[in-house]
Amino acid sequence: MSLAPLVRAVEEAQLRDDRPELESGDTVRVHLKVVEGTRERIQVFEGIVIRLRGDHLRRAFTVRRIAHNVGVERSFLLHSPQIDKIEVVRHNVVRRKNLYYMRGLTGKAARLKERRD
């Protein structure tokens, strides 16, 4: 028997089915579980998905936002239990898979057009 299905089966157990299909250029709100001492609270990180990589359990994405005039990027594993919820706010028109060009743009130039479909 091929070995790959066994590894896949191991990963399958941890896959989460409540994750939306993300695409590059999506504006998303990532609800993170943050543990402070003994208390756990939810923190929201909102921005544009500029990168998607990996597949299955290793599927990961990077969200970029401008916070206090500073560009901030955070990478997450799509199926991470540290993520409570992911909301897709809107789909935007982009022509690339990796939106690294966003890093050089600020203000009005860094806007993306909403996709109409």
Binding site: L3, A4, L6, V7, V10, E11, Q14, K33, L57, R58, L77, H79, S80, P81, Q82
Partner: peptide, 20 residues
């Protein structure tokens, strides 16, 4: 069998080898 990664109890990533 092969290697992969799984999430631990605190959501951390653990690199694991799958052994039959």
């Amino acid at each position: 069998v092969g290697m992969t990664q799984i999430f631990g109890a605190r959501g951390e990533i653990i690199p694991v080898t799958v052994i039959e």
